[in-house]
């Protein structure tokens, strides 16, 4: 289960099918095709049509990259949320980064790490974003393929700074490769993150678990009520013959409570303690076979002892 959540894509892109088949060959399972918008938002935004016949093993998502430089720009973020599977923002200065970390309704913060950032990443700022369920993204593409030595050096430096500032938590790694040649195999990427300063487990999480969390959380935000309750199966309207028998079932809606750590966060308290106590008590109830045997034997012995005693008494 490897994720690559940033593959640039436009509708008239002919190389995308080759990139996708190469990604599938390398072992990725979920790929997000991203559309980048810089500056002023156009009046109607729609995700470009997905490429025809992608490899069957790949799950395709749509993603919007918004480049932010001006605080008075982002009023329509909530309306965009429904159109794309993932919304990422790319703040260009420290002020916008702070805004994105604390306020903006996005899923991923994707900084451009191949240029020099004129400020330091602060743990307080980034941890606020991580606590809200927003992940920080490192794109290795510009550093690996020939964007020059400067891009590579900046990428390594910025990635190390980002890892240091976040203590290695809440980081995802994706490619941002414009061509198939810029993509690397998952384990090669994990090794890269090892060299940048993450441990191997964290590196693997960055490309598997954390990325999966981003996708799952983004989906929850879009479909469910506050990320807490989601209707998984709405029941079926039975046909006429079966309606009598199935009436009971169809009247009952299956509502599944999904508990996510991040969304419910601080404002909504969940009663996690109740369920955990129940679970803790349950295993004590049934007696083990061994215990039952022991008790049976004890009872038998008691009974026989009683008989013997009575015999003794009778003989005497």
């Amino acid at each position: 289960m490897f994720y690559d959540l940033n593959v640039p894509y436009a509708a008239d892109d002919h190389e995308i099918s080759q990139t996708l088949s190469f990604l599938a060959e390398l072992g990725y399972t979920t790929v997000a095709l991203s559309q980048t918008i810089t500056g002023k938002l156009p009046s109607n935004i729609n995700p470009p049509k997905l490429p025809t016949n992608p490899p069957t093993s790949l799950k395709l998502l749509t993603r919007l990259n918004l480049t932010l430089s001006d605080p008075a720009q982002n009023q329509r973020l909530t309306s965009l949320t429904q159109l794309y599977d993932i919304i990422a923002v790319r703040p260009l200065n420290e002020k916008m980064l702070l805004n994105a970390c604390t306020n903006l309704e996005c899923d991923v913060i994707s900084l451009d790490l191949s240029v020099r950032q004129p400020y330091h990443f602060k743990f307080k700022m980034l941890s606020a974003a991580i606590a809200r369920g927003i992940r920080l993204e490192i794109c290795y593409g510009p550093g690996v393929t020939g964007s020059g030595a400067d891009a590579r050096r900046n990428l390594i430096g910025n990635a190390m700074a980002l890892i240091r500032a976040t203590r290695g938590r809440g980081i995802i790694v994706s490619s941002e490769a414009r061509r198939a040649l810029g993509v690397r195999a998952p384990w090669d990427v994990i090794n890269l993150t090892c060299v940048w300063g993450l441990s191997q487990e964290r590196g693997k999480e960055a490309i598997c678990e954390e990325a999966r969390k981003v996708v799952a959380l983004a989906k929850l935000k879009r479909t469910s009520w506050r990320g807490v309750i989601d209707v998984v199966h709405g029941g079926q309207a039975g046909t006429k013959e079966e309606s009598a028998t199935k009436q009971k079932q169809s009247s009952r809606k299956k509502v599944v409570e999904k508990q996510t750590e991040m969304v419910a966060g601080d404002s909504l308290k969940r009663k996690a303690s109740v369920s955990s106590e129940l679970v803790a008590e349950e295993p004590e109830k049934p007696l083990s076979k061994r215990e039952m045997k022991r008790r049976a034997k004890k009872a038998r012995l008691d009974a026989r002892g009683g008989v013997l005693d009575s015999n003794k008494v009778s003989t005497e």
Partner: peptide, 16 residues
């Protein structure tokens, strides 16, 4: 990874 110079290989096994 096949570049766009050879778009002829369309079937999945050819790509592999």
């Amino acid at each position: 990874p096949s570049t766009s110079t050879k778009p002829s290989s369309t079937s999945s096994s050819n790509r592999v």
